[in-house]
Design a protein around this nucleic acid. Sequence first.
DNA 1: GCCAACGTTGGC
DNA 2: GCCAACGTTGGC
Length: 159
Amino acid sequence: MRRYWLLKSDPEEFGLEHLARSPRRTTCWSGVRNYQARNLLRDELRRGDGVLFYHSQAKPPAIVGIASVVREGYPDPTQFDSRSPQHDPQSERADPRWFAVDIRFESRLARPLTLPELRAAKGLERMVLLHRSRLSVQPVTAAEWRVVLRLAGTGAAAG
DNA sequence: GCCAACGTTGGC
DNA sequence: GCCAACGTTGGC
């Protein structure tokens, strides 16, 4: 059964436009260094799952697009790269600490759904985004997914 | 830039 | 195992 997720990203670091312009519109979602988020990446995200792409630290913060999971959890290569800011010298290849997935761009929303708008939306009252701070990978229910797509307008703009 | 939330670290 | 100190996220 298809499930749904929300991924946060600072658009100045890596926004939806970066994803849309990546080779095959696909990128390795690396650099997550929070254990709860790690567990989701490693154990829960499945190929074909839907992803809401959220711009954090934006003005205003907003869900801006849709992506999908195209490769399930595998060791995050940046943890082993001593030149990467995400390097984790305590992580060993035989027992990796951090995981990544690959996601692919699917579409832009016809219009961004801002955080205030999400807070005000009927049906999103219990959305994790609105209640738990600092979790960059989080589950979205099928009902919430439908509400978000409906709020975004009929269908998403082609990318 | 401020600061609340909250995860992580490390002394004990 | 507790908890204070510290660092980061991320909204405002």
